[in-house]
Nucleic acid binder design. Structure first.
Length: 187
DNA sequence: CGTTGGATTGGCT
DNA sequence: GCCAATCCAACGC
């Protein structure tokens, strides 16, 4: 849970050939052990295996028949914790992202979990990849946002686990998703 | 082995 | 605001 807000402001980088894509993370959600909304809740399976691997790796899964979602594994091996990357501000390689998305507006490139993966061209091939030593996709340290700018809410698109405010995002930032969480605890 | 429904998006009413 | 698209893991029989 603590890692989810800590990821805000850090930079996700992707290398595709000579192109370098970079985005600043502005929205995350935490998924912890014992959390009924987590894919890890019913134990390890072929799909969620990366979640039970060592921390600092990517967990990528396919949802709704159309979209890939990226998570950063945060728990120790065997634990099953991850943070969903929900939105980011495009910094470098906007042209490549626009081509991948089929859209041009910067605030429509990465303003949602499915959009972010599509813009960064992340899919099943990246499941389990190391975000520290990786050569295709990795994390770089970014400037920490002012804690006063970090807002919280319940998570988006789930039916259980709405009792905790485990979505973290930068308030008044135009690159966050347009999701409508239940019972926002702050706005 | 068949069914169900989802950590979403975008287009249409 | 509503809902179809489109895949596949999980679960039930």
């Amino acid at each position: 849970m603590q890692v989810a807000p800590d990821l805000l402001g850090h930079i996700l980088v992707r290398r595709i050939g000579r192109a370098r894509l970079a985005v600043r993370i502005v929205e995350t959600e935490a998924y912890e052990p014992g959390d009924a909304a987590s894919h890890a809740f019913r134990g390890k399976t072929a799909r969620n295996a990366a979640m039970f691997g060592p921390p600092g790796r990517l967990y990528v899964y396919f949802s709704y028949g159309n979209h890939w979602m990226m998570n950063v594994v945060t728990g120790e091996a065997g634990e099953g914790s991850a943070v969903l990357l929900r939105a980011a501000e495009p910094l470098e390689g906007l042209d490549v992202m626009a081509a991948a998305r089929g859209r041009d507006r910067p605030d429509d490139l990465c303003s949602g979990p499915g959009k972010l993966a599509q813009a960064m061209r992340i899919d099943r091939a990246h499941d389990g990849q190391d975000l520290v030593e990786g050569r295709h996709v990795w994390l770089e340290v970014g400037d920490r946002p002012d804690p006063a700018d970090i807002a919280t809410s319940t998570r988006v698109g789930i039916r259980v686990g709405l009792d905790e405010a485990w979505r973290f995002y930068l308030a008044r930032n135009r690159f966050v998703s347009r999701a409508r969480p239940a019972r926002p605890s702050r706005s």
